[in-house]
């Protein structure tokens, strides 16, 4: 009898595998959608890999290194690119049908959105202070946080000074750093059962290809593109959606999924701002437009 390892090796060509999908049409289809939405500027972008990269480019650029150079090249067109990117994700999500298990998409707001039929179960939040519960980083003051960042933290005038401020720097946070303003309670916005506070505002900057936020939307969550001060964003509402944040190694981990309430994500002068709370779209937009 042949050796067991030889028998196993000989078994390999006899196996039946599910047919391998062709992954190239996916990319080409995405590129085609992007072109039709105006995201791509063929004369500027050139070949297909640049087109893929174009799909992944955020609307903000880091100021140094290759990312910065690329950003300057695209600077004039970034608003057009970003607006088109929002269009793209909306188109992808509209294409969602329950029969398709998952449609992955990404938009140029450093955010990956995945629409799934059966959302995963978030992990129980760890015990401890809010910062560690929600992965916000370490508590600090506005002036101390500002001293560590190369970009300006903006505070919404409609909410006033935050009750607590958290700072998250690399490698856990994005390369440009991330600040979260916590508003424990506000009379017109009830305390969220998901976060335990009225409003969370997260502001972040990073490199071109970094993803800050990862969201998993079930069939009952709604996504809508919005414009804030002429700049693109999106509003997620309805059923609480899953929100993943990065672990200490910088990876997005499913274990760190938590439920998020209604959320507005948008670009504010190159900073990605995320406003989360149990509030209406109008309330979120009012906060957004009051950012300094």
């Amino acid at each position: 009898m042949p050796d067991l390892e030889d028998q196993l090796t000989a078994l390999a060509p006899a196996l039946e595998w599910p047919s391998t999908p062709n992954f190239l049409p996916f990319h080409r289809e995405e590129s085609a959608q992007a072109r039709s939405s105006g995201l791509l500027l063929p004369t500027q972008w050139g070949g297909g890999a640049q087109r893929w990269r174009g799909l992944l480019l955020p609307i903000h650029r880091e100021v140094s290194g290759e990312a910065g150079r690329r950003g300057r090249t695209l600077g004039r067109n970034r608003w057009a690119l970003a607006a088109a990117a929002v269009f793209l994700i909306a188109a992808l999500l509209l294409a969602y049908t329950p029969t398709r298990k998952a449609i992955a998409g990404w938009i140029n707001l450093h955010t990956t959105i995945q629409r799934v039929e059966h959302p995963p179960t978030p992990s129980p939040l760890p015990s401890g202070p809010l910062g560690s519960q929600l992965g916000l980083g370490t508590p600090t003051s506005l002036s101390d946080a500002q001293a560590q960042l190369s970009w300006k933290i903006t505070v919404p005038s409609s909410l006033g000074a935050p009750d607590v401020i958290y700072l998250q720097m690399p490698p856990v946070g994005p390369s440009g750093g991330e600040v979260t303003l916590v508003y424990a309670s506000r009379s017109d916005i009830k305390v969220s059962g998901q976060t335990g506070v009225s409003v969370l505002i997260t502001e972040a900057r990073g490199k071109v290809d970094e993803n800050f936020f990862y969201k998993v939307l079930g069939p009952d969550a709604h996504l809508e593109s919005v414009t804030i001060n002429g700049r693109p964003g999106f509003w997620i509402s309805g059923s609480p959606h899953e929100f993943a944040f990065q672990d200490a190694s910088g990876d997005f981990r499913q274990e760190t999924l938590r439920l998020a309430t209604n959320t507005l994500v948008f670009d504010h002068n190159g900073t990605i701002v995320r406003i989360e709370g149990d509030m209406t779209k109008e309330q979120a937009l009012q906060i957004a437009t009051s950012l300094g």
């Binding site: 595998w17 599910p18 391998t20 992954f23 297909g48």
Partner: peptide
């Protein structure tokens, strides 16, 4: 070539490895 923006190069990589990638995931 792909890093320099040559789309055909990355397409070739995808074609080269899509079967082993898919089966590994399977």
């Amino acid at each position: 070539r792909a890093v320099r923006g040559d789309s055909a190069a990355y397409e070739e990589i995808v074609q080269r490895y899509q079967q082993v990638a898919f089966r590994t995931a399977y």
